[in-house]
Amino acid sequence: MRIVFFSDIHGNLEALEAVLKDIESQNIERIYCLGDLVGYGPQPQEVVQRIRDLKIPTIMGNYDDAIGYEKKSCGCAYNPGRETEVGDESLNWSITNTSAAAKEFLRSLPHTLEFEEEGVKFLLVHGSPVDHLLEYIRPDTSSERLQKVLERVKADVVVNGHTHLPMVRWAMGKLVFNDGSVGRPKDGNPKACYLIIDVVQQSISYEFRRVEYDVKSTVEKITEVGLPAELGLVLVLGKGYEMGQSKSKNTIDFKI
Rank of each mutant, 00 (worst) to 15 (best):
M1V: 08
D8H: 13
H10G: 09
H10K: 13
G11M: 12
N12H: 09
L20T: 00
S25K: 13
S25A: 11
N27M: 09
Y32H: 02
C33G: 01
G35M: 06
D36T: 13
P42M: 03
Q45V: 10
E46V: 06
V48C: 07
L54S: 04
P57A: 00
G61T: 06
G61A: 04
Y63F: 12
D65G: 00
G68D: 07
G68V: 09
K72N: 10
C76W: 06
A77F: 15
Y78Q: 05
N79F: 13
N79K: 13
G81T: 01
E89T: 10
S90T: 06
L91A: 06
L91N: 04
N92Y: 11
N92C: 00
N92A: 04
N92H: 12
I95L: 07
I95Y: 06
I95D: 04
T96H: 06
T96I: 09
T98Y: 08
S99P: 04
S99C: 09
A100M: 09
A102W: 01
A102R: 00
E104P: 00
R107H: 03
L109D: 04
L109V: 05
P110S: 00
P110D: 02
P110A: 02
F115Y: 08
E116K: 10
E116G: 03
E117L: 13
V120M: 04
D131H: 14
L133V: 03
I137S: 11
D140P: 10
S142V: 10
L150P: 11
V153R: 02
A155M: 03
D156Q: 11
V158S: 08
N160V: 03
G161H: 02
H162F: 07
L165E: 12
P166I: 14
P166K: 14
W170M: 15
G173C: 08
K174Y: 07
F177E: 08
G180C: 05
S181F: 01
V182T: 01
G183W: 01
N189G: 09
K191M: 14
Y194E: 07
L195M: 08
L195E: 09
L195G: 10
I197H: 09
V200E: 15
Q201R: 15
S203W: 11
I204T: 10
S205R: 13
S205E: 14
Y206L: 06
R210W: 13
V211L: 09
V215R: 13
S217W: 01
T218H: 06
G226L: 03
L227D: 02
P228L: 02
A229K: 11
V234E: 15
L237R: 15
G240S: 14
E242T: 15
G244I: 13
Q245D: 14
Q245R: 15
K247S: 14
D253H: 12
I256Q: 05
